[in-house]
Amino acid sequence: SHLLVVEPEKIYAMPDPTVPDGDIKALTTLCDLADRELVVIIGWAKHIPGFSSLSLTDQMSLLQSAWMEVLVLSIVFRSLAFEGELVYADDYVVDEEHARLSGLLDLHVAILPLVQRYKKLQVEKEEFVTLKAIALLNSDSMHIEDVDAVQRLQDSLHEALQDLGSSQHTEDPQRAGKLLMTLPLLRQTAARTLQHFFSIKVQGKVPMHKLFLEMLEAKA
């Protein structure tokens, strides 16, 4: 219930109406959105119980390692009510045709299987916010100083996920396990998404804000 309360307000893509549609506009819109989402994600992380008690170095390592998983999971959850469309933001819903026309098809194809997976599980908001926190704490960063402290946070989030399973899904004792088993696909999807943005960065045609660049470079 704490994670539900600290769930961030939605933010909007606000594509620039003066720029003609096309690859550059679509990618500029997404990079700008991602930069603002990152600010929100960093603020959100601080509200995960126990996160702010970790050392600043460990907080940084976890975010640098998992930010794209958190970002992808948010897009996926927003897209659950849609068919073949990705809700990057409420004012930026992209179907396959739009994705093809605006150079977002790679991203589209990478993220949709994860949407299908969570649809099949009928994942609920309580589960989603818990999984998002688990993705952050379970980032497998190689640079964690206090491994035990991170493990304790993982354990309490894992326990929350199991409690949800045993109270809301008595019909399926494996519910929490099924949700945890989606995390490899999330990591794979985030890796493909990062790859997409790395190549955009290398091409240099799309402006990227400093925080987004800083976080991309941390994953390089």
């Binding site: 960093i42 601080k46 170095t57 940084m60 975010l63 400093k210 925080l211 800083e214 976080m215 941390a218």
Partner: peptide, 15 residues
């Protein structure tokens, strides 16, 4: 960590 100035600053902000 010098390279990650913005993340560092945002985490230190109390809000």
């Amino acid at each position: 960590k010098e390279k990650h100035k913005i993340l560092h600053r945002l985490l230190q902000n109390s809000t």
